[in-house]
Nucleic acid binder design. Structure first.
Lengths: 233, 233
DNA sequence: GTGGCCTAGTGGCTGAGCCACTTGACCGGT
DNA sequence: ACCGGTCAAGTGGCTCAGCCACTAGGCCAC
């Protein structure tokens, strides 16, 4: 039958830009954290207007593949610009509960140990992370970096290389759940309050209270609805 | 006119536009197939540039919530602009195989019955749907409306109110799988060929061949990877 | 009616430009 | 040597004005 009259494919320009962008990331060997070329440069080298470049970047942005910083460039979030297939999404969703259970077990113990073993310098590092997170949130950010630093500092203060090693093996997936969690409207401030409670327990050397506070916090994060896109409040 | 322009305080303008758009769809009571206001009008009433409106629309486009037709306006694909939560996606993915199994059972029998019972007028209706689908595809559309009409016509020609009732209960999910299927590049023309085969068997009164052709068609559709976005190209 | 044409309306895309923010280098004072 | 402030370049955010391509619908000639 009419295999003749079909293609009909008007690709929107931004879709072609998307493809070129994906190709560029591969060819240039870019990975997570690397910066993409400036919009003006991309426009020039691809021979399209900045507006079209921007449309493509907006797409990548809502897909969480890229982060555009006003005045600071556009950065890769992962090592690729490919959208994750639904299958893998579903697969990871299944594994997530296990990861979060493990996290609860590990971090609860880490908080307990940190309360007992932390040095004053380590306590100060934890406090600094807390302050950093507070500033981030005050500045409109979601505080993900402060969050990361906080947990890293607590882990260090626990002085258990074995538990730290365990944490490392699930670090990547924790990062994802953290990001998703803090994307929820109003979550950053609540998260900050929970971190503060953990800090105070550790500062007071109250191991039991530190463990309880950490457990509560991790369980809150575990309620994340992974990868559900929520508009930035 | 529009309400007073509030200071838009959010980080990305297109995100605010998205919210306004979602709100507008609700307030104006728009539903699938309805047309959104023109980009120029939206830009004027929201007090932003067309470029920002377009960025928002591009987002809705890649999310499959809206279809922008060059020169013909922008149309709603569903009754809402909200993104479907992952849970429902996963849930429906699980139920989908059952639905498609049911569809195969029902439609195969319907085609068989249609071949035996159809009146000439009903055959004509089926043929008209086929022609409509061919025109849609020739005109650059994916032929989803012609597809719908074809199956509806076959169902009617089978003269089985019970089977028709069953079909109705899974109609909504069939619609979705149909849309997703016809989004695949090159799929519309192959689909048309399969429909033609079904039509010819029904026209010839060959019940067995009609059933076989329909079964083959439904199984093809069943291979759809639901809601995995594939760029039109 | 029917078919062809015309035009207003609409989305697609561009180019130039301004503003806001980030970064890093430079320079002065201590 | 160090700190702190300033400044300019670079970059993303957004706008404006405009042209083009396509669509839809009415109008006219046949």
């Amino acid at each position: 039958m009419s295999e003749a009259l079909r293609p009909m494919v008007k690709s929107r320009l931004y879709e072609q830009v998307l493809e070129r962008l994906r190709a560029h990331v591969v060819e240039a060997g870019l990975s997570a954290g690397d910066r993409l070329p400036a919009e003006r440069d991309l426009a020039a080298s691809l021979g399209v207007s900045r507006a079209s470049i921007k449309q493509a970047i907006v797409v990548l942005e809502v897909q969480g593949l890229v982060e555009a910083r006003h005045g600071g460039g556009t950065y890769l979030v992962r090592d690729t610009l490919d959208v994750e297939p639904v299958e893998q999404l579903v697969e990871r969703r299944k594994r997530l509960p296990e990861v979060l259970e493990a996290r609860e077990a590990l971090e609860t113990k880490l908080a307990e140990l940190a309360a007992e073993r932390r040095t004053d310098a380590e306590l100060e590092t934890i406090r600094a992370a807390l302050d950093f997170m507070r500033d981030e949130i005050g500045g409109g950010d979601n505080g993900v970096e402060g969050d990361r630093r906080f947990h890293a500092a607590v882990t260090a203060a626990a002085h258990s290389s074995l538990l730290a090693e365990f944490m490392k093996t699930i670090a990547e997936q924790i990062t994802e759940s953290r990001t998703e969690s803090l994307r929820q409207p109003g979550r950053p401030s609540r998260s900050l309050a929970q971190h503060t409670a953990i800090y105070e327990a550790i500062a007071a050397g109250d191991a039991k209270k530190a463990a309880a506070a950490m457990r509560k916090h991790v369980r809150t994060v575990a309620k994340v609805r992974l990868l559900t896109w929520v508009p930035e409040d």
